[in-house]
């Protein structure tokens, strides 16, 4: 009788173990999907704000205006007032950029990063969310010299303020 009770207890314990291991695996998948959706929402929100949205042409409604972003980066306090973030950076991925931060106008257009909000001292990059974005900038060499907008590929990096 005692043996039977022990065996039944072991049986239910094993069933519970298998059940929890399967459901935990599903939780991880759900968490990953939620994280991705959050990043996508964030990119949509930021690229839709008038400060960053590309509005000069109807050619790309979801593009970020690279020239506007650079202008914003020249005044670090402006970005902090507009968005409640500890870090905001736009990174150029394609065409291959030169490995340097866009600090002065002569760095453009080949530089890699525009830092609109710099990371506060003592804060690490852990928890940064990223999303792929299209970047639009004016290129005077296009359209036979009269200039046109060039669309490049990049990422937006954001880090929320600590609660």
């Amino acid at each position: 009788m005692a043996f039977m009770l022990v065996a039944v207890m072991i049986f239910f314990a094993m069933v519970a173990l298998v059940y929890f291991s399967i459901s935990t695996a599903n939780l991880r998948e759900t968490a990953e999907q939620l994280r991705e959706e959050e990043a996508q929402e964030l990119a949509s929100q930021l690229s839709g704000t008038p400060e960053l949205a590309f509005t000069a042409s109807s050619d790309c409604s979801a593009c970020i205006d690279f020239d506007k972003a650079f202008a914003l980066s020249q005044n670090p306090n402006h970005g902090k007032k507009l968005w409640n973030l500890d870090f905001l950076m736009i990174e150029r991925i394609y065409p291959d950029p030169v490995e340097k931060t866009c600090l002065i106008p002569s760095d453009l257009p080949d530089c890699k990063n525009i830092r609109i909000i710099n990371l506060p001292e003592g804060r690490g990059l852990s928890g940064t969310k990223t999303a792929f974005v299209s970047l639009a900038r004016w290129d005077a060499s296009l359209a036979g010299g009269s200039g046109d907008y060039k669309y490049e590929f990049g990422k937006i990096h954001t880090l929320a303020k600590n609660p």
């Binding site: 991705e36 990043a39 990119a43 999303a131 974005v133 299209s134 296009l142 036979g144 669309y151 590929f153």
Partner: peptide, 24 residues
């Protein structure tokens, strides 16, 4: 698994200006 990140990637990739037809 369907990925929102890859979906964003493709949407942004469609807008890339290529070398085809430069300077237009």
């Amino acid at each position: 698994t369907s990925s929102a990140e890859i979906s964003q990637f493709l949407e942004a990739a469609f807008e890339i200006t290529t070398e085809c037809g430069t300077p237009f």
